[in-house]
Structures are given as C-alpha cells and as structure tokens.
C-alpha cells in the first residue's frame, strides 16, 4: 500500500500543491486529473522517488520510500512522457535492454512474444525511429508486461494510442489490478477499467 501524507511541491518560486493526502490499496487505482501545470507530473516523479519531497512523506507499506532504496524501485514501474526508447535500436533490442537495465533477463523470443501482445508482431527488427508515435508508445508500454512491480505509475499512457491499443491497455490494467496490483494514472480522457472504479484525484491550482 502506498500512503501519501501532507505532501507539498514547490517548483521554483511557486507552490504547486500542499497538504496532499491519499492512499492506494491493492486492487485499486487512482485516476489523477487536473489542468496543465498543476503538478501532475511533478507528483508522479515524487511518487517514484525521482524528485525530492519538499514536505510531507510518501510511505510504501508504512516505510518512507527514501529509506527503502532498491526495494522500492523494484516495486515501481514508471512510464513518463518520454518513451525511454533508443531510436537507433530495434523494438526487440529496446525491450531486452530496458529489462536488462532493471536487472531482468529477457530473451529475444520472450521479447518478440511481448511485442506480439502489444500488436507489433512483424516489426520486432525495425529500428524504433521507423515506427509511428503510437507504435513507439506501444513498445514503451510493453515494459508493463515484463515488469514484476506491483505499483504502476503511468503518466499519460493513452496519448497517441489508437482505440485498439487503448482497449488493450485498459485490459492490461484490469488484469494487473485483479492480480493485486495498484496503479496511478494521469489521463485527460475518461478511462474505464472493467470491474474496477477509480478513485478520482483532482489537483487544482492553489
């Protein structure tokens, strides 16, 4: 369980939010919304431990994430605005390398199987720069399939996806939650996940 208490965020001179409190339990997900520039991305970067916490505390199963180190990083899968793909490498290579950097060995066949699941069968050997925006996003999302992390932190995962891919991602999220996972997702669209209503968290300008 992820617990956030009295969290504040300051960007430069501006205070984006303060006193933020929420928790995510197993099998639950949060739909994070808010206007541009209210600090959604900043909040997510704090949740995964990239950005320092100005005030307040983020706890994972009761322990502050600062003191968990690699144990927490193993528990989180983060997908940011950027796809974290190398344009020169093929989809398959990107997937294998991404997993290897996280300490997970992924063979070529396993990578191809995952790429088939995101609808990129037959494009495994193509350098990523030849893929469309939506296809690149799919390669990036394939990370969710090898990740063993219980907490998914997804920043605008639906951007650039077509309807089939949106449905695929919603189903993947549903399966993840059904297995006891949790997720926090930003999105400007409505997101429906079968059998699971979101906790709505709306950031407003202070």
């Amino acid at each position: 369980m992820l617990t956030v208490s009295d969290l504040a965020c300051v960007r430069g001179d501006r205070r984006l939010f303060a006193g933020l409190e929420f928790a995510i339990e197993a099998r639950n997900w949060i739909h994070l919304t808010g206007e541009n520039g209210v600090g959604k991305t900043s909040l997510m970067r704090m949740l995964v431990g990239l950005a320092p916490v100005e005030a307040g505390e983020i706890r994972w199963h009761g322990t502050p994430i600062r003191s968990l180190g690699d144990d927490y990083r193993r528990a989180v899968c983060y997908l940011g605005h950027h796809n974290a793909l190398k344009e020169e490498l093929t989809a398959r290579e990107n997937l294998c390398v991404g997993a290897a950097v996280s300490g997970i060995a992924l063979g070529d066949d396993a990578a191809d199987a995952l790429l088939a699941r995101v609808g990129l069968a037959g494009r495994e050997q193509l350098p990523v720069r030849f893929l469309s925006q939506g296809q690149k996003r799919r390669v990036a999302l394939a990370r969710l399939l090898w990740s063993e992390a219980p907490l998914w932190v997804l920043d605008e995962p639906f951007v650039a996806l077509d309807t089939a891919a949106v449905a695929w991602l919603a189903a993947t999220l549903a399966a993840h939650l059904a297995e006891g996972g949790m997720a926090i997702v930003t999105s400007h669209q409505e997101v429906t996940i079968a059998g699971n209503t979101a906790q709505q968290l709306r950031l407003v300008r202070s």
């Binding site: 990239l50 690699d70 193993r74 983060y78 605005h81 950027h82 974290a84 190398k86 996280s102 300490g103």
Partner: peptide
C-alpha cells in the same frame, strides 16, 4: 544528453540496480 532527452536516464535512475554500475 541523448539518454536524458529520451527518458532512458530516468529509467536507469529508477532501476533497482546501483546507478553507479549503469
């Protein structure tokens, strides 16, 4: 610079292995 721009560096910092190794 390239890893920073395409987000790979972020993923490296979040990987459960020491960043110094990467």
């Amino acid at each position: 610079a390239n890893d920073h721009a395409d987000g790979s560096l972020e993923q490296m910092a979040l990987a459960p292995v020491p960043l110094g190794l990467l």
